[in-house]
């Protein structure tokens, strides 16, 4: 149906909430606990629902100073944080979660100027804490994606905090406005601000695969892919997703592997074939350190205390 008023069409499904604009269509899954589908011009951008990101593959310095051992709970949280609560608001007004039978009241002609849905995740840590991932879709079909971490005393330091977006197929390139090279909070004085393009998704060939490819202080990022998993899609044209900062610059890495895949490999040749794009969008990044690799911690100002709040917010949509 042509949306002549440039409003969003809202489909109150039995297991999901459909939010449809001309080009961008969203499917929020109550069962999966997050955004299950994001298509732009029919091309799928999500492989699984985005989840809070807490882990980074242990660096040699992390191993040496036992950081990963002390913070191992966050590995569990990275893998196993469960969605505990879902809240929906239409045009700014909260509504009762529109699942059956509440959704019997709707029709195939529901529209809205904005749709907001918040998924709250509980971490499997002791003590627990929570993360909200909030999606706000505006009438033009663009998405504001925000993740908030609630600080909790008694938890070990965080390796990182952000959102992990896994895409069905590998990126062919990405370009960004930010800092040159691979940067971390304690290793970015030598970087130059500018516009950069990276072909493929290089994994920095550290002798043992580990955290890599971070880009701090990013204003915008475009990820380019060519293939989809859709068997009926023979189109080989590149297509793009654009991520812009929303209030503050963000950090990101765009890699073919999850932190856990990198964590498990002792050599690069053990890593699996490059099938996906793992786009990590981060609001907090632990420094890498460098004093030594057998005990010295990252300098205090580059550590992530768990009792602080952290957040990241970006705006996502078609390339403009």
């Amino acid at each position: 149906m042509e949306n002549t008023k440039h409003q969003l069409q809202v489909v109150y499904g039995d297991g999901s909430l459909g939010v449809l604009s001309d080009r961008v269509k969203y499917l929020f899954s109550y069962e999966r606990g997050g955004l299950e589908s994001l298509t732009i011009d029919g091309k799928e951008w999500l492989y699984r629902v985005p989840k809070p990101l807490f882990w980074r593959a242990t660096t040699d310095n992390d191993r040496g100073n036992h950081f990963s051992e002390k913070s191992a709970m966050w590995l569990g949280a990275d893998l196993f944080s469960a969605c505990d609560e879902i809240a929906v608001a239409i045009d700014g007004q909260p509504i009762e979660l529109p699942i059956a039978p509440v959704n019997n009241q709707y029709s195939n002609h529901e529209t809205a100027d904005s749709v907001a849905i918040t998924f709250t995740y509980l971490t499997p840590t002791v003590p627990q804490t929570k993360v909200e991932i909030n999606y706000q879709v505006t009438a033009d079909g663009r998405l504001q994606l925000t993740a908030n971490y609630h600080g909790q005393a008694g938890l070990p330091q965080l390796p990182a905090f952000g959102i992990k977006l896994v895409m069905p197929t590998p990126a062919v390139s990405f370009k960004y406005q930010g800092l040159s090279g691979e940067t971390y909070p304690d290793r970015m004085d030598g970087a130059n601000a500018g516009n950069y393009q990276t072909v493929g998704m290089p994994v920095t060939p550290y002798l043992v695969p580990q955290e890599c490819g971070m880009h701090m202080q990013t204003d915008s990022l475009t990820v380019n892919r060519r293939a989809t998993l859709n068997n009926a899609d023979a189109d080989a044209q590149e297509f793009s997703l654009m991520i812009n900062q929303n209030g503050n610059p963000f950090a990101f890495s765009c890699l073919p592997y999850t932190a856990e895949e990198l964590e498990n490999a002792t050599h690069h040749e053990e890593l699996p074939a490059k099938r996906r794009t793992v786009l990590s969008i981060l609001g907090a990044v632990r420094g890498v350190g460098g004093i030594d690799s057998w005990g010295a911690d990252v300098e205090p100002q580059f550590q992530l205390a768990a009792d602080q709040d952290y957040s990241v917010s970006v705006e996502i949509g078609p390339q403009v």
Partner: peptide
């Protein structure tokens, strides 16, 4: 010897 460049390192050189 300083700034032990093992793997992903060399953070904090400013200090």
């Amino acid at each position: 010897e300083y700034m032990h460049s093992m793997g992903n390192s060399v953070g904090g050189m400013k200090s």
